[in-house]
């Protein structure tokens, strides 16, 4: 098995307060409990996609809004304004005058990726474990959760997903695809409730 875990690029961690202080004893359950405490939040993001077809990575940035358990809004400001609202099983993407509504169920691969992010934000271990094998590294101050797809179809597309964070907050999401394409989203928290 040639499954070398790549080093996650530096994740900037910002936090307001720390609920769990013992850095040594972090396990998945405790991480999830901590994450689940965050009911809503707002953050800024910078996302880079490395796509083989393109000569250089494409970069986008904007803001994220999350409210538990399953609403996530990604408001891209650059390079083109776009908003993506994820609510339950539907996605609405608005770009300029165009508005697309998609059902997650029609795009299982996309759904799995989105659920990995939502599941982590919601601290829903059960949901995550339906699609992924989880492993945790690090302590409360800096942790990295690795998700390996269980489903064969997913395995053909996604190599792994790595979500890093500090305390109850997610600071980066990295998605590595089997075809070598990769995306890395860095997240900086603005407010949380």
């Amino acid at each position: 098995m040639q499954c070398l875990i790549r080093r996650v690029s530096a994740a900037l961690a910002l936090m307001l307060f720390a609920g769990i202080t013992n850095a040594a004893g972090l396990d998945i359950d405790r991480l999830m409990q901590g994450l689940a405490q965050i009911r809503s939040g707002q953050a800024s993001f910078v996302e880079k996609k490395y796509i083989a077809m393109l000569d250089k990575p494409v970069e986008s940035s904007g803001e994220l809004f999350y409210s538990a358990p399953d609403r996530l809004e990604k408001r891209t400001l650059k390079p083109k304004p776009e908003s993506m609202i994820l609510d339950g099983g539907s996605i609405v993407i608005e770009r300029g005058r165009q508005k697309h509504s998609l059902q997650l169920q029609d795009y299982p691969e996309l759904a799995a990726v989105i659920d990995s992010i939502r599941g982590t934000l919601a601290g829903d271990r059960k949901a995550l474990e339906r699609s992924y094998r989880l492993s945790l590294e690090g302590g409360a101050e800096r942790w990295t959760l690795q998700l390996l797809p269980i489903d064969e179809k997913m395995q053909a597309a996604i190599k792994h997903i790595r979500i890093a964070g500090a305390q109850h907050f997610v600071s980066s999401i990295e998605i590595n695809r089997v075809d070598g394409d990769r995306s890395l989203m860095l997240i900086e928290k603005l407010t949380a409730r």
Partner: peptide, 18 residues
């Protein structure tokens, strides 16, 4: 289309681009 690749739905359209 390239912008769309960078977007959230990029995953869906990548294989269609060529």
């Amino acid at each position: 289309s390239i912008d769309l690749l960078s977007s959230s739905a990029g995953l869906l359209v990548k294989s269609l681009l060529p």
